[in-house]
Design a protein around this nucleic acid. Structure first.
Length: 229
DNA sequence: AAGTTGGTCAACCGCAGGTGC
DNA sequence: CGCACCTGCGGTTGACCAACT
């Protein structure tokens, strides 16, 4: 025998909320609060909804401080880092992101970030010569030591000149990979093919415009891996 | 133009844990 | 302690829409 339902399903409305229902719920909570009893709230507010449905609607949509969409790169980083460290504990992850709900973060992960992380994992598994070292600090000053794929530093020879890079890029353009190039050429070639060096490489002049220092693919550029299988 | 596919996101479902009797 | 009730959580579903064929 299963658990008794939390409400009489035959007598409650389900599906998308109407503007009128939103208004009733918002007005009631703003006047009286939740009262610590979601089950009793719908009838008091004049709603034919399940208490759980009211709670979800309020927490995920009607709360005044909710943000929707427009995730920043820093938020992406925090989500990815926490997911790596604690798994799918969305409420905990959302608590580190002001204005975000667990449902919103979960949806964002499932529809966007998961693919990116899978692509990065793929990259890491096929490019063991890369090193990963960085630390970020959130707005709440909680430090996260990133031992995973939040940011990648491609191991390059810092003494390499721009001319050397150009020379090898030209080789790549001619159909040659940078195999053997300071031990990490294949990694750079792969990154180049995926467009990671677009900020440094001027196609019109067919050369790298940087100063020859270490090339650091940004997190944003790494997201290009989401296009990988 | 019509059908198909894939992405997005609000909402639902069922379980686990907390609390009070 | 056992039970019932309630809340919170994570997984999943399904409606909607845009892009593609």
């Amino acid at each position: 025998m299963g658990r008794a339902p939390c409400c009489d399903r035959a007598n409650v409305k389900r599906g998308p909320w109407s503007p009128d229902e939103d208004m009733l719920l918002r007005n009631y909570i703003q006047k009286h609060g939740t009262g610590g009893n979601w089950i009793a709230l719908p009838s008091k507010a004049g709603l034919r909804r399940c208490g759980k449905s009211c709670r979800l609607r309020w927490l995920n949509y009607l709360r005044p401080d909710i943000k929707h969409g427009g995730y920043t790169e820093e938020e992406d980083t925090i989500i990815c880092t926490l997911y790596k460290n604690i798994g799918s504990r969305w409420s905990v992850i959302a608590s580190h992101l002001p204005g975000r709900t667990d449902n919103d973060v979960k949806n964002y992960w499932n529809t966007k970030l998961k693919k990116k992380m899978m692509a990065i994992d793929h990259y890491q598994s096929t490019s063991p010569s890369t090193t990963i070292t960085t630390t970020i600090t959130t707005e709440t000053s909680v430090p996260y030591n990133l031992t995973t794929q939040t940011s990648y530093e491609v191991s390059t020879d810092s003494s390499s000149s721009a001319e050397q890079h150009n020379e090898n890029i030209n080789g790549l353009n001619n159909g040659n990979y940078w195999s053997g190039y300071n031990g990490d050429g294949e990694v750079e070639a792969m990154l180049f093919e995926l467009g990671f060096f677009s900020d440094d490489y001027d196609q019109t002049q067919d050369q790298v415009m940087g100063d020859g220092g270490p090339w650091l693919p940004t997190l944003t550029n790494l997201w290009a891996f989401s296009d990988l299988p």
